[in-house]
Design a protein around this nucleic acid. Sequence first.
RNA 1: GUGGCGGUAGCUCAAUUGGUAGAGUCCCAGAUUGUGAUUCUGGCUGUUGUGGGUUCGAGUCCCAUCCGUCACCCCA
Length: 430
Amino acid sequence: MSNPLRAVRGMNDLLPAEAPLWQYFETLLHGWLKAYGYREMRTPILEHTALFKRAIGEVTDIVEKEMYTFVDELNGESMTLRPEGTASCVRAAIEHTLLFDGGKRLWYAGPMFRHERPQKGRYRQFHQFGIEALGFAGPDLDIEHLLMTARLWRLLGLSDCIHLELNSLGGAESRARHREKLIAYFQAHEAVLDEDAKRRLHSNPLRILDSKNPTMQAMVEAAPRLMDELDEAALAHFDAVKQGLDDAGIAYKINPRLVRGLDYYNDTVFEWVTDRLGAQGTVCAGGRYDGLVAQLGGKPAPACGFAMGVERLLGLLAEVGVAPPAAAPDVYLVNVGLAASRFALQAGETLRDAGLDVVLHGGGGGFKSQMKKADASGARYAVIIGDDEASVGEVSVKPLRGEGEQQRVALVAAVELCGAGVSPASTDLF
RNA sequence: GUGGCGGUAGCUCAAUUGGUAGAGUCCCAGAUUGUGAUUCUGGCUGUUGUGGGUUCGAGUCCCAUCCGUCACCCCA
């Protein structure tokens, strides 16, 4: 690997061997979204830097040190490769006045970019899939999102290795009140604080609650709780969400220390977490962000949504042993000789007209080597054409899997022999 | 951004105290010159991640750098 022309660090090529798993996932996803009435939104990968600063928050790690930001030298504008999808989605909804006639259920998927140190389940270009329900106020959409994600885990066979953590952040006033109490509390226990905690004391005191440092555990446990600051409306909203989960029989754990990293959340926040992926165990996360639309210049509209890390989710699928079979053609077209090669091109088209998946052998070679390729391709049949067959418009059909003798027949008859009309196995992955 | 471990053939891995770089697999060809998992025979592939240094001599020791990996931080 001395070639200097390599992929950028933390950005991966998706090779043919892995593509079937992605395709399986995407196909399943589309059906699932349709079942809930969500519609796709595609936005540019590049946005004005100001969008993310405004939406995510100036003092977050993402904005401070993880964004791919550069100046477009042609016009001097500051551009940023999107680090997440919500900001763009909301921006587009406002820009195209999508909310003028009520709430909208939207979804998006695609690559996101964050300049972090690569690690399992964390890459500099990674893929997120997410949904945003814009313009819906009540707790019913929060619940819908939790029900639909729970269904997705069921569809994927992952229910046993993912669990739900839930919290409520309340409104801006209660968060501000809690923040003051928290800072005062931590200052009173400054002797116990580690370096990280001291650094975060004023920038992001909520994060201190998340510390994994064992020497701080007791002190953190006794810290003022956000839950105690929630006002009546926030409590009612939270109760309704919990009630919805109970009604649906979905288990959850209240995690008072669950804090989302982006500034725009309020009330409901949640994470679906697995312990099978090492340190990056959050597979799906989201919550409510009632202030964001107005914050980005739209007419105020409540909203909630979530995003999932596709690499993490697929990593989990691989971990539990889900592996779609590699796609195999119905027919491998062996052809030896000049006349045979010409006839084979036509024969391939005829077979495909009948709905068969056909791989044409290319690049010449003898019967033996071509038969080896036919076997390796996984095809059910080898359709063999030598100059003998080509001269009379016939082909030899040889079953490669299971029983059956090789038969030499007219091309039209080969269509039947190769099982056209029977639903081809290769169109459904499972 | 910080720290631990690692980098030898396309892939999985060997190589005593520094002494000429190997095996399996894969691929290619042949074993009745028109026929596939098997078996047998033969063959191909490497600037040992990169660049310096020590040495008569470095895959092996030292430094730097890149990449990977795990964790921290953070997050999907």
